[in-house]
């Protein structure tokens, strides 16, 4: 009897999936539920207390800062998305279609992925000697005579925030796009050429449509990482710019957990809506 139960594919599947399910229930679903609950609680200067108040949401939606900050978050996400997509697509296209040996392909691909396994914080810090007032960029531009005065907007500005985002996250575009491109049947490209398509026409009419799933997966990664970020914006803008993540982390720093939770709930809904829209265009499991 016991042996028969174990042979049932559902039971065995549940047993094998149980550890994953436990972690996700304990450290993903429970925290989300907790945040939703706490978003209705009240707070004093030092503590929080259970209640059922709409105050946090009323305050959130009543404040013009909220809309400004959400707008800034979308702006960062959109600009970063456009840049990472252009750069990532070009890099992946070069690797997949212009490098001929598989070994070289793998080696160059690894060169692109290795920074992903190093510290984001260090990678952000490493821009400071470049962008600072007396940094390499300003020194070089002055010595070339392009500018007379150091540029002030290189560091601690929208420019440096987006630069850091592109630096950190382009990889999330390169990997899935490269992965889909490698699965394109090369005979399709030959067919296009035999029928008289130019290289550019092949790119636009054959490669881009076939690469769409990879582009969508990369888009999901980049958009969610940028929308949920708080540390890049804080560090690279020298605390002079804000996005939704920073709104949350500022509330946390002030121990205003209910208000942070309310903002977090709205952010989560926004991100999930964006993802739901993007997922309509791609079946992730099929594309791996």
């Amino acid at each position: 009897m016991a042996a028969n139960i174990l042979k049932n594919r559902h039971v065995l599947g549940w047993l094998q999936a149980a550890p994953l399910a436990l972690v996700l229930v304990g450290f993903l679903l429970a925290p989300i539920v907790m945040i939703v609950i706490v978003s209705f609680w009240g707070a004093t200067e030092f503590s929080i207390y259970p209640a059922f108040l709409w105050d946090n949401y009323e305050f959130l939606f009543g404040s013009p800062v909220t809309y400004k900050v959400f707008w800034a978050t979308f702006k960062y996400a959109f600009i970063t998305w456009a840049l990472t997509l252009s750069i990532g697509f070009t890099v992946a296209y070069f690797l997949a279609f212009h490098v001929r040996s598989l070994t070289v392909q793998i080696a160059l691909f690894l060169i692109c992925t290795i920074p992903f396994w190093t510290s984001n914080i260090i990678r952000m810090i490493s821009w400071i000697p470049f962008l600072g007032r007396n940094g390499i960029a300003n020194q070089t531009l002055i010595s070339w005579g392009v500018i007379d005065e150091p540029l002030e907007w290189l560091l601690y500005s929208d420019f440096s925030v987006i630069l850091a985002f592109v630096h950190l996250y382009t990889l999330f575009m390169v990997v899935p796009i490269f992965n889909t491109m490698m699965r394109i049947d090369k005979s399709l490209l030959e067919a296009a050429r035999d029928n008289g398509a130019s290289g550019f026409q092949t790119l636009v009419h054959v490669i881009v449509p076939l690469t769409k799933p990879g582009i969508m997966i990369g888009t999901i990664f980049v958009v969610t990482l940028v929308m949920g970020d708080f540390i890049t914006v804080r560090f690279m803008s020298g605390s002079q710019r804000a996005n939704v993540g920073r709104l949350i982390s500022n509330d946390i720093a002030l121990l205003q957990y209910p208000s942070a939770a309310a903002t977090a709930v709205v952010l989560l809904c926004t991100v999930l809506i964006v993802i739901a829209i993007l997922l309509r265009f791609v079946n992730i499991r099929k594309e791996l």
Partner: peptide
């Protein structure tokens, strides 16, 4: 779990 903003996990687990 992959797409949720990291600070939510941090905040939620901390609160629990």
């Amino acid at each position: 779990s992959l797409v949720i903003p990291s600070i939510l996990v941090s905040l939620g687990v901390g609160l629990i």
